[in-house]
Nucleic acid binder design. Structure first.
Lengths: 380, 380
DNA sequence: AAAATGCAGTTAATCGATTAACTATAAAGC
DNA sequence: GCTTTATAGTTAATCGATTAACTGCATTTT
């Protein structure tokens, strides 16, 4: 039915080996023969059967990208960026991208291993691993090309490419401190994502340096999205007595705490949610409360808010991870990689720095556009 | 090295055929044998080699999703939603998802055909086709399972699953008319995407019904994203003399037109951009200018804006398309599908309806939460 | 002149399943 | 008692490439 390699061979009066060698560009075939075979191939509309090739060569030229199983995950701008970076690099190198979500089934039935064992893929990129993903220990044993992207699991000795979360958290917080803020709240993403912990550590480091004690009452838990960021901020404002409709009983009797003058949110989505909460309470960003986010998703610059944030080129992170994975596959060098990409502060409107006025403390604002970064040492 | 089917057969003292039949759940094998074989399979950690199976069965259990080659495409919430819908249905039905972007190369070198010819995929979902994608005519000839998602090309007789764009445009515009607006601007996405044209037709239909003439000076071109939506709205406000910084020469001498009291934007992203422009000019949404969008992306409800929009469940659209594609693959029924999904108006804040005040015209606002929809007939 | 090397291929085994066609045995039908 | 039917398998061809090992011939080396 469809043209196959042996048809080409017959038509050219050569063996199938010759045709195959022509296709792989072997030097064992003369120019004349190459030309002849190539012409016949073109004329006949021949395409190699990938399954046959896979069976024979035992590689698939396919990578799998695994993303967390959050509903509507692909609408999340963070994952979108990562995926774009991965895709562009992979397709440039003739790799196909297979998409998977880390559903319950995917994990429980070890489908992540199945993909390797069945020989469906050559390597795997795992985006956004959390402490719940301890089953990834399976990748420590056998030698399957595997890289985590954007997060990692400290206990496991597996490759990863991540942003410099600690420095990011540090820069964001230090920036606020340098703007004169002393009471800075922190809205964190789920601590099961280790990056969130690292950002928190950066926050604490900056406070420590400035001699500001960490106040637990202004550290709020959220879950990396707009909604929970909003909720966290509402809760905070409630605690500060900024909300007119107050609950009675336990909550109300806790008493009112001093309102922070700034908030560092563990990612941009949560920052955007926080801003919405602030504005809903008729407070002003950045005048009443300055806000800094992290990730620099495209939305941050486009929306109403002109968010000050920490950039670490999520697209690039995806690209680098893909590059490393392909290197691992093709060199079959199973060297671990633990790559931490640099971050930088992007100063826009929500922190108040660009107003170039004197801060409360009375000293002139220093705008750190591109602070020097000391690349931190991997954890293990 | 790795366990293969013949190893299992040997260990069980049966033929490879038997093992294969057990695996495919054939009734030709006795219960006892099945149990025995299954146990050995489990113990040995056997996984079938997918390439061998593909070669033998001539199907791949893989679908390809093609998305437009807009940079950072996966960060676009529309495509994210579609992809989520597709992914969830596909993986539930044991299909793998291959991701491709319609790059220049992909189109020019007919890689979309190659994927079929090489037997890499069983079917293809093409998201967001435009009039530029005329090469898709290739899919009219051969019988390759192929469905367009979210858009279509009128000249080509190819399957598609889309939202009811015409009715959507109609409902949005009628809603604004019912709120008392008579001067309603339209910001459209690129007309190369036929859905944009359909939305425009809906807009015109509603105006016609209300006896309002179409005014070209308040119809603006944008490109489905926040930025161009913002730019279009700025341009409009400039024309209306709302902008203090005015250009001299040609633009300025055109004279000032009356400002619309409402805007219908061809999608939510553009609506969000428009709102930003309006607010930047110190005008109020919805008091000075009401805004209605279309698509109901998740952001619309989460952001500052509480956008009134037309919903057509993009996630569902992806799901339905995937369902139909798999049907086409497995029944090898090459029946064309042209499915148009219903839309409904989602009334939130930006149209002003929920304020329940009297509109300018002096009559009471009717809120249409769920208007009856007459499913329109496909175009061809 | 014999041996070594290079060139341009060919032969045939191999990758690991699936499945149409066949067989052997037992049970049922008439 | 012979034929038919059902059950539970087996045999062996097949899917379509790739590639290690080999061949035959020409040229170069010694």
């Amino acid at each position: 039915m469809t043209v196959k390699l042996s048809d080409i061979a017959k038509q050219c009066g050569v063996s199938t080996a010759t045709v195959s060698l022509v296709l792989s560009g072997s030097s064992r075939i003369s120019r004349a023969t190459k030309r002849r075979v190539l012409r016949v191939i073109k004329q006949s509309g021949y395409y190699p059967n990938i399954a046959a090739r896979m069976l024979s060569t035992n590689n698939t030229k396919a990578l799998c990208v695994v993303v967390p199983h959050i509903s509507h995950i692909f609408s999340n701008p963070f994952f979108g960026e990562v995926l774009s970076g991965i895709y562009d690099y992979a397709s440039k190198n003739d790799y196909k991208i297979l998409l998977e979500a880390a559903t319950y089934e995917f994990c429980f039935y070890k489908k992540y291993l199945q993909l390797f064992k069945e020989r469906t893929i050559d390597g795997m990129l795992y985006v956004g691993s959390t402490l719940d993903d301890a089953y990834l220990i399976d990748f420590e044993k056998d030698n399957m090309p595997f890289i985590q992207v954007g997060s990692y699991i400290p206990e496991l000795n597996l490759s990863y490419v991540i942003g410099d979360n600690l420095t990011g958290g540090y820069l964001a917080t230090r920036h606020l401190i340098e703007l004169g803020h002393r009471r800075i709240a922190f809205i964190t993403g789920n601590f099961k994502v280790v990056s969130a912990q690292d950002r928190f550590m950066g926050y604490k480091k900056a406070l420590r340096e400035a001699g500001i004690p960490v106040d637990k009452s202004i550290i709020l838990k959220a879950d990396f999205d707009e909604k929970t960021g909003y909720q966290a901020m509402c809760k905070l404002l409630e605690r500060c007595g900024d909300v007119t409709i107050r609950r009675f009983g336990k909550e109300a009797s806790r008493g009112v705490i001093a309102r922070p003058t700034a908030v560092f949110a563990g990612n941009d989505l949560m920052a955007l949610g926080a801003i919405r909460a602030v504005e809903e309470k008729k407070l002003k960003v950045p005048d009443d409360i300055a806000v800094v986010g992290m990730d620099n998703i495209r939305m941050s610059a486009a929306g109403d808010s002109m968010l000050t944030t920490v950039e670490y080129n999520i697209y690039q992170m995806g690209k680098v991870a893909c590059e490393e994975l392909i290197k691992q596959i093709e060199d079959s060098a199973d060297g671990q990689i633990k790559e931490i990409l640099p971050v930088k502060l992007v100063v826009r409107e929500t922190c108040g720095a660009n107003r170039r006025r004197l801060s409360k403390g009375g000293y002139v604002v220093k705008v750190i556009k591109n602070p020097s970064i000391n690349p931190p040492v991997p954890n293990n």
